[in-house]
């Protein structure tokens, strides 16, 4: 289970980058690409191996004060991203 003190790390198989032409963040991997939507991009760019889940939640809640509490959404995304093996957690 994900908890707020875990530090998600990007699976080294993937590279996250901003694509100007597509106006979105993408995850690149061998011969493939995943286009991320706006909120997925916001979360993924905070996954730097240092930020804890709680830091990501606080940062995004501060950044988007009008969006309501984002905690649920962030947990949901992180668990989906974990299943897709974009992220991993060191135990």
């Amino acid at each position: 289970m994900i908890n707020s003190s875990l530090q998600p790390k990007l699976n080294p198989m993937f590279r996250l980058q901003w694509e100007q032409v597509q106006e979105c963040y993408v995850l690149l991997y061998p011969e493939g690409m995943v286009k991320l939507n706006g909120s997925a991009g916001e979360i993924m760019q905070l996954i730097d191996g240092n930020n804890k889940v709680v830091d990501i939640i606080n940062t995004l809640n501060d950044k988007f004060p009008d969006a309501g509490d984002l905690t649920e959404d962030i947990y949901e995304f992180l668990s989906a991203a974990g299943e897709k093996k974009w992220l991993y957690y060191e135990q």
Binding site: E19, Q20, V21, Q22, L28, E31, M33
Partner: peptide
């Protein structure tokens, strides 16, 4: 520059 991103 045109947006190509994967290069083989």
């Amino acid at each position: 520059a045109m947006g190509a991103v994967q290069l083989g």
